[in-house]
Design a protein around this nucleic acid. Structure first.
Ligand SMILES: NC(=O)c1ccc[n+]([C@@H]2O[C@H](COP(=O)([O-])OP(=O)(O)OC[C@H]3O[C@@H](n4cnc5c(N)ncnc54)[C@H](O)[C@@H]3O)[C@@H](O)[C@H]2O)c1
Ligand SMILES: NC(=O)c1ccc[n+]([C@@H]2O[C@H](COP(=O)([O-])OP(=O)(O)OC[C@H]3O[C@@H](n4cnc5c(N)ncnc54)[C@H](O)[C@@H]3O)[C@@H](O)[C@H]2O)c1
Lengths: 213, 213
DNA sequence: TTTCAATCGAGAAATATTTATCGATAAGAA
DNA sequence: TTCTTATCGATAAATATTTCTCGATTGAAA
């Protein structure tokens, strides 16, 4: 009965969507108006049927013999992922990685707008990093609530991650993007994504071991 | 016929292995000597059977009623992932993200040792970042060959990523960890992992959209 | 207008992955 | 010693995901 039908899509599909999105943006900037699954699949090294199924979850429909219209397809993906309007976010841990994340312009494209950073280091508090203020952690809950912040990014050392998460929960944050290599203990209704660099590295290491064996 | 039997393991399993690894290291540092799948599963919020199957791919065997010995289990995972000895790597793109990666001590734990960085920016070349030299890109192939570097990390802007990859291939590098949001066109026998932050963010965005709908 | 080739969409088949079941084993209690 | 319980390992069942097949549609060429 909702206006935007929330179809549940396989997670692997959702993970591939950004690849299509980048590809399509690039096609668009090249003046391309239509594109078929066959071509996308060839360029992205995927199965054409899979591309078709993946795109279908966003609700788009293609035309036989031609394919999909690039611009509506981009919009369809943006809409599906909620990337059509910016969501403000807070970051905790303005260290090495945190600084890189604060400065990354690319997130805007994905609907993510990190508006402020929080840290416990007195030397960092009050400073600005890439134009964003660094505030003391205890200010987070109040501000998050007041500003209706929904997303929190954690880039503190592993041992402080749970504490950072707790503060976020306190501030009414609903989704956490966690860069620390620990699994967080959170209320049922919280959304979490662990950005686990070690996972990718594990796959890489393993494949390399197999390749050079 | 190989000495180390290369069983092919499901990729999801390999991706979970680092989580067990961290968890076990932590258990170890707490003086824990044995641990069962049941406990691991509870703490990591997984299915006990899955934990058992995952650990089994590394070749370890547990004891009924007790579980697994922590230290041998850690070694078994390290061995399986090739994390028991350091592999040297080169990084291309000493920018914002590259700097964070160069300074990250955690990679050592995963058997990865970034020994030098390469960039095209004259102002960066010759400098040291976190104790690692920044060299001109055209030095990469020769050095990589001479030092038998097998792993390359790409942290240049998307439009330069393919060029960086090509140079790595030229230098005999066999595995690429790519942080740029593009899919690289590489020879068959190259190993690649795209560290796609956008993928995680997509899942997060989507789940958040569903959670607050 | 008719034919042809490219492509879509839907459903079926094949694979991969996760979850459940069950007998065997070991440690500790009775 | 015997009983009980937690756990393992193997196999089976269930579920999820990818890949295949095929009829329908469309635009362009004959
Ligand atoms: N640097 C990388 O390339 C990299 C790569 C993968 C994962 N990570 C993970 O990201 C996290 C951060 O890594 P980093 O290299 O940026 O570390 P870092 O030490 O450079 O930065 C950590 C920051 O968190 C702050 N901090 C510590 N405890 C805090 C607390 N309780 N509340 C608020 N702020 C606190 C510190 O003051 C510091 O500014 C770590 O968990 C690390 O494992 C980093
Ligand atoms: N910063 C982040 O948090 C972040 C997050 C996700 C993904 N990324 C991706 O990582 C990559 C790097 O991001 P960044 O923020 O560090 O960018 P950056 O601009 O800070 O750094 C890029 C570096 O690459 C160098 N470079 C450019 N072209 C080169 C070439 N052809 N050869 C050698 N060096 C070259 C530049 O001199 C610069 O030092 C980008 O592809 C970006 O999309 C970054």
């Amino acid at each position: 009965m909702s206006v935007v039908p929330i179809k549940k899509a396989p997670e692997p599909t959702i993970r591939r969507l950004p690849d299509y999105y980048h590809y399509l943006k690039w096609m668009q900037s090249n003046g391309r108006e239509v594109v078929s699954c066959t071509h996308i699949a060839r360029d992205l090294d995927l199965d054409p049927t899979q591309v078709r199924k993946d795109l279908a979850v966003t609700g788009i429909r293609g035309k036989p013999k031609v394919g999909y219209l690039v611009t509506p397809l981009i919009e369809s993906i943006e809409n599906f992922l909620g990337w059509n309007n910016l969501t403000d976010a807070f970051l905790v841990g303005a260290g090495s990685l945190g600084t890189a994340l604060l400065g990354y312009q690319g997130f805007k494209q994905y609907g993510l707008n990190i508006v402020a950073a929080f840290d416990k280091d007195k030397r960092k508090i009050g400073k600005k990093i890439h134009g964003k203020e660094v505030l003391p952690l205890d200010k987070l809950p109040g501000l998050a609530e007041r500003m209706h912040i929904l997303i929190g990014v954690i880039s503190v050392p592993a041992e402080s991650a749970q504490a950072a998460a707790d503060v976020m929960v306190e501030g009414g944050i609903r989704a956490i993007w966690n860069f620390a290599p620990v699994s967080l203990d959170l209320p049922e209704d919280m959304v979490v994504q662990n950005e686990n660099l070690a996972s990718s590295l594990a796959v890489l290491s393993r494949q390399l071991a197999e390749a050079v064996k």
